[in-house]
Nucleic acid binder design. Structure first.
Lengths: 230, 230
DNA sequence: CTCTCTCTTAATTTTCTCTTAATTCTGTCC
DNA sequence: GGACAGAATTAAGAGAAAATTAAGAGAGAG
């Protein structure tokens, strides 16, 4: 899950970045609006979520919002969480009405930011699904996205390491969709160009020990998917 | 736009109701969880948005959330904005993770409530299915180009190897058009004039085992095609 | 600072796909 | 009918992609 953090306060940005990557997000951080725009337009490193600070040096964050929505077409709509020191009512209203999907005022607690991100995620990802809680259930496997635990059938709940969790979540959020090795790589890591790594393969292997061998299917030459379960 | 307000504080509820109806919302107000549930399940008076107070007399609002989602099927998903006096972090996180789409703590300003409702509305509207079926169906054969699988009549879905898939896709994307061996070669590989390779022939042969012998027709001396099917 | 768990790398094995090449089949033309 | 060319069939070896394994590097927790 790739998050784009648009924030010019380096100290804050670092804190958020650490917290997010600890949860398995891949974080791209930029300080300027124009950099954000170019990332949104890019095919491969387009983020799944955007955290947008309104107080940017080069442009007003509010002006950025419509541009972001313009770039990200309807089919790959990217939700935006606004982060702002402006806690006055008109600012909130303006932010939300300009296209923000949520509005959090500084100072904030990281746990709340994370929870609100999960809401946006599940909205964006689970379009086809009825479950709107923090757990995704698909066939024999259910995955709790807030505590990173999975359960096979009615077995024990076990905790997944970060990378394994990220991969499983990506696959389970879009059942039936194939993700290539490159796609998974770009969602797991920041602007990588490391072509020759089989880290994803190894994580998949370890995941299959936990989900059962058949849950994650391989489409040879293309990628991996989990089936849509009835 | 119909809003269901689940709130036992009558004074507050009245204020919200007035504000909402002034903005053109139709408001149903109930004070108990079970009443909310029955409204959600009802066919005709199912709301478009729910504002849920967590401190209800008859049941915990958090227990209500999954039930609401259960009742409202995937096609008419109803977003829930949680309203609560509990402003502690764990409460917020629990609320959002249980399926809440936003969390507003009391006391709040009505303008912010309205702005956040607009966000939920907007998002619900954006809920257009993105899963455009990328399948080409032609006569007895249908080919899913996103997961590289084909189906013959109503049989099993089977996966096609890469080269076979490419060939079948080319042929099925332009039914009625004839492709020569050279054309297929040049589409499959980047070299045009490999003189003596019958790799394409072999792939076609293997394809015909899966599509039935007649699906891909041979025009002797020219190439291959699949018919336009009515 | 040390210990433990996680992540990545890299080598190896396994599995399946692709191509080659030899052979048979089929239609066409003289 | 016979000869020819193009296409179909078949089997086997080469090749590529993925799975597996083990070990060392790295990050977090105490």
């Amino acid at each position: 899950m790739k998050v784009l953090l648009v924030e010019d306060d380096l100290l804050l940005a670092d804190g958020v970045q650490v917290a997010l990557s600890r949860k398995g997000y891949a974080v791209d951080h930029v300080t300027r609006g124009k950099d954000a725009l170019s990332l949104v337009s890019s095919e491969d490193s387009c983020p799944d979520l955007i955290i947008l600070d309104l107080g940017l040096p080069d442009m007003d964050g509010l002006d950025l919002l419509p541009k972001i929505h313009q770039k990200s077409a309807a089919d790959n709509f990217v939700p935006v969480l606004i982060l702002s020191a402006r806690d006055a009512l008109p600012d909130k209203v303006a932010g939300l009405d300009s296209g923000g999907d949520d509005y959090l005022t500084k100072p904030f607690e990281v746990a709340e930011l994370l929870a609100r991100l999960r809401v946006l995620e599940r909205r964006a990802g689970n379009r086809t699904q009825t479950s709107q809680s923090a757990t995704i259930a698909l066939g024999p496997v259910s995955l709790n996205t807030s505590n990173h635990r999975m359960r096979l059938n009615s077995g024990e709940e076990i905790e997944l390491p970060r990378r394994e969790f990220s991969i499983l979540r990506i696959l389970m959020e879009n059942p039936g969709r194939i993700y290539s090795r490159e796609q998974l790589n770009s969602k797991l890591y920041n602007w990588e160009n490391d072509v020759a790594s089989n880290a994803v393969d190894v994580h998949l292997h370890n995941l299959r020990k936990k989900t059962g061998a058949d849950f994650i299917r391989t489409i040879r030459g293309v990628g991996w998917l989990v089936e849509k379960h009835p």
